[in-house]
Design a protein around this nucleic acid. Structure first.
Ligand SMILES: [Zn+2]
Ligand SMILES: [Zn+2]
Ligand SMILES: [Zn+2]
Ligand SMILES: [Zn+2]
Lengths: 146, 146
DNA sequence: AATCTTTTGCAACTGAGTGTCATCTGGCAC
DNA sequence: GTGCCAGATGACACTCAGTTGCAAAAGATT
């Protein structure tokens, strides 16, 4: 059984090259946003990414952030999460698959992975006659005070 | 291991009584909405509930549907789901817990339940120092064409 | 540098849901 | 049954996340 907080590997997939290959231009805003996503360890939403991007270039617009997030998602370069009805939150793809436990008091997001659960999901889908394209497992909880 | 499509038991929890006991008035719109939720087998969103309610009473307003859904959710009488960033979809509580597989082509929602997965979730949370308050497991897939 | 797209910033728009408020009504008292 | 009134309703203004239309700007290619 595997079940550990997931450490983000120091992955650095070359998304600029991937974009270029897909015939998509490497513009200044895109470079900045990719930089932010590559560095962060958390799961920021579009507004937070926008705020961080502003530090680098005051002229970036929020719509460009939204557009870029959609583009990167379609390319498979990032994952979009919609925790508990809040705004979408993003993280770079390319690391190992993991699911999330959300601390209901602090909002912290803890990553974990259970190969056993992943496997059971496959079995369930197969028995129901489906192939899983993707899935979402979120645990919402509070620190156990003993 | 339990893992079967969940059949909705012919449950009929008496929510009107529960509402009354909580000092909440049984109004015409609420009766209608409870009736819709008690009869449906699917996971309609607020707009769909509104449309079905209109068939019964043309004067019902969409805001009342939203308000009622929030009220019922707070009472624990219904569950709210937010599949894939879409609008909230609802179902009556009171049946057995289950999770959902969403057919990406048709939008159909198939219910299933795996006690093994439920148990593994508990273990994971415990090891991370958390108590699970609730969780969400959604499989997104396509019918396997063999 | 000139050209041809693609992308950008801005602002106007959409969709889901909430807040405000004058009016209405369910539940109880008589 | 009638009267009362806090709680609920419908209408509509508003918020919030995200999208879209468009003229201007900036990549890529020559
Ligand atoms: Zn997973
Ligand atoms: Zn993550
Ligand atoms: Zn479950
Ligand atoms: Zn269900």
């Amino acid at each position: 059984m595997t079940k550990t907080p997931v450490k983000h590997a120091p992955k650095k997939p070359d998304y600029e090259k991937a974009l270029r290959k897909a015939g998509i231009r490497i513009t200044r805003p895109r470079k900045i946003i990719l930089g932010i996503l590559g560095e962060t360890e958390d799961h920021p939403d579009a507004l937070e990414i926008f705020r961080r991007a502003e530090q680098v270039d005051k002229s970036i617009s929020l719509s460009t952030v939204y557009r870029t997030m959609k583009l990167l998602e379609e390319m498979g370069a990032i994952h979009r999460h919609a925790f508990e009805g809040g705004p979408s939150r993003f993280e770079q793809a390319g690391g190992d698959h993991h699911d999330h436990l959300i601390d209901m008091d602090t909002g912290d997001v803890i990553e974990f992975r259970s190969d056993r659960i992943e496997q059971l999901q496959q079995e369930i889908a197969r028995q129901l006659g489906y192939d899983i394209v993707h899935h979402r497992l979120e645990l919402y909880g509070r620190r156990r005070k003993d």
